[in-house]
Simulated assay, not measured.
Amino acid sequence: MTTPLTLTPGRRPDGTAMLTVVGEIDMSNTESLAAALASAPGPLVLDLTDCEYLDSAGLSILFPHADRLELIAGPLLAPVLAISGLTGLTTRH
């Protein structure tokens, strides 16, 4: 069974690509996240504000894109992103 996940592409007012994530990222739906990240070339803002869960499978999808990601995350995911080392490779708000 696939965990519910909604990925909504868009653009910020400055034209930067943005991907808004709602739900949970786990091994059941990382292919969708990988495809969405691959389809957005260049700098990308990843809004994880409404992401309730992010496991190691999800993190493994984010690391290859770290050099072009800007993360927006709330207090729920902040420790996960920090402990994984991802915040040291990206910008997080």
Rank of each mutant, 00 (worst) to 15 (best):
M1E: 14
T2H: 05
T3A: 06
T3P: 00
P4H: 01
L5H: 06
L5A: 11
L5T: 03
L5S: 00
L5E: 09
L5F: 06
T6I: 05
T6E: 10
T6H: 12
T6L: 10
L7T: 02
L7V: 03
L7E: 07
T8Y: 01
G10D: 07
G10I: 08
R11M: 11
R12G: 06
R12W: 07
R12F: 08
P13A: 14
P13I: 07
D14E: 14
M18A: 10
T20A: 05
V21S: 06
V21C: 02
V22P: 00
V22W: 02
G23D: 10
E24D: 13
I25S: 05
D26I: 06
M27A: 09
M27C: 15
S28M: 06
S28I: 02
T30P: 03
E31I: 01
E31P: 02
L33N: 07
L33K: 06
A34H: 12
A35D: 15
L37C: 12
L37R: 04
L37P: 05
A38G: 14
A38L: 07
A40R: 06
P41V: 06
P41A: 04
G42E: 11
P43S: 13
P43T: 12
L44Y: 07
L44V: 03
L44A: 03
L44S: 00
V45S: 02
V45R: 04
L46R: 05
L46D: 07
D47Y: 00
D47V: 03
D47F: 04
T49G: 03
D50V: 00
D50I: 05
C51D: 04
C51E: 03
E52P: 02
E52M: 10
L54M: 13
L54E: 03
L54R: 06
D55Y: 10
D55H: 08
S56C: 13
S56M: 08
S56Q: 13
S56T: 14
S56D: 15
A57M: 14
G58S: 15
L59H: 11
S60E: 15
S60M: 14
S60D: 15
I61D: 04
I61K: 12
I61G: 10
F63P: 10
P64T: 12
H65I: 08
D67Q: 00
R68I: 01
L69M: 08
A73Y: 01
G74P: 05
P75Q: 03
L76K: 01
L76S: 04
L77C: 09
L77G: 04
A78S: 15
A78H: 12
A78K: 12
P79S: 11
P79I: 09
P79C: 08
V80P: 00
V80D: 11
L81Y: 02
A82F: 08
I83A: 11
S84R: 04
G85Q: 11
G85W: 12
L86G: 10
T87Y: 13
T87K: 14
T87W: 13
G88R: 14
G88E: 15
L89N: 08
T90I: 02
R92M: 15
H93C: 07
H93D: 15
